[in-house]
């Protein structure tokens, strides 16, 4: 047993260990937001000057002037990567927002309408989940004719299932919860119960679900762009950069693929950490630790 001296003043505010769970969680959230903000800001500040073709500085390794080196046309890879990430972020944001809203609506419909609607939706969710992700992504992107629309549609249409399932389960559980049924016996209408008991419970789930969709959306966007049916080569998206760089890997220009890849990884992990830590904070079971 650790021996700690305990004073006997009621309701005192105590500083326990500084690096307790909530401080760490909030720290991680702040750090993730900062990383993402710096990336976006740098992209704005640097502008597109670095994208000019400069044949005199072709294939330069990383240096102070060009932190990520330059490519076979002398373009600054750092600028290209940041611009690419900005595009990826924008596409990812639209795709995951669409996907999350779709998941929310489908989950709510399944749980509230019940009966054959629920059965059909559950079947659909299982179908989507049993399909290999990449295959579905490629097929849908192909149907929509590739490009930005194809990427958004394919990511949105393949990623709603997880959140739909969570929302459906939560609503079903809440509907039968004693306190919700009791609320109806107190004379409150269905709308009142939905607004006061259900929505405040679902909202955090939705936000966390949305945030955790983000890294998937960005990775998959990069993935299908990499194999050539996503964004067009004229848009300097990360997937495009990575796919072009592959051709130059064997020539020893490692920085063309490795550094943009690392940047993508940092961004994806930041979003992941943001979502996971927010989830820990919002869950009453882990919020106190």
């Amino acid at each position: 047993m650790a021996s700690v001296s305990l004073k006997r003043a009621p309701k005192r505010v105590v500083t326990f260990d500084v690096f307790n769970r909530r401080v760490r969680t909030l720290g991680m959230i702040a750090f993730s937001v900062a990383v993402l903000a710096v990336m976006m800001l740098l992209a704005q500040v640097l502008g597109v000057d670095g994208l000019q073709t400069r044949l005199d500085v072709r294939n330069q390794p990383p240096s102070w002037a060009n932190p990520f080196g330059t490519d076979w046309l002398g373009r600054d890879m750092f600028t290209r990567t940041l611009q690419g990430l900005t595009i990826s972020l924008r596409v990812g944001l639209i795709a995951s927002a669409l996907s999350a809203v779709l998941g929310l609506l489908v989950g709510l419909a399944a749980a509230t309408l019940g009966g054959w609607v629920d059965a059909a939706i559950t079947w659909l969710i299982d179908l989507f989940m049993s399909l290999p992700h990449m295959v579905a992504l490629i097929l849908i992107a192909f149907v929509f004719g590739g490009g930005v629309n194809g990427v958004i549609a394919s990511v949105a249409l393949t990623h709603w299932t997880g959140l739909a399932r969570v929302i459906r389960a939560e609503v079903l559980q809440l509907k039968t919860a004693d306190y919700v049924q009791l609320s109806a016996r107190f004379g409150h209408s269905k709308m009142w119960i939905a607004r006061h008991h259900l929505l405040p419970h679902l909202f955090p789930q939705f936000v966390v679900g949305l945030l955790l969709l983000f890294p998937h959306a960005i990775l998959h966007e990069a993935g299908i762009t990499f194999i050539g049916i996503g964004l067009s080569p004229h848009q300097p998206a990360v997937g495009v950069i990575l796919s072009e760089s592959m051709r130059h890997l064997s020539t020893g220009y490692w920085w063309l693929a490795v550094l943009p890849g690392l940047a993508l990884l940092v961004m994806v992990k930041s979003f992941d950490a943001l979502g996971e830590n927010l989830r820990a904070l919002l869950d009453p079971r882990t919020a106190q630790e």
Binding site: M1, V4, L6, K11, R12, V13, V14, T15, F16, N20, R22, V23, L26, A287, Q288
Partner: peptide, 19 residues
């Protein structure tokens, strides 16, 4: 003479001890 104290969050980072 066992005593157990919990640190509970009130609002934000302010913590309160309960025994």
């Amino acid at each position: 003479n066992l005593s157990i104290t919990f640190a509970m969050y009130e609002a934000g980072l302010r913590r309160r001890a309960i025994t």
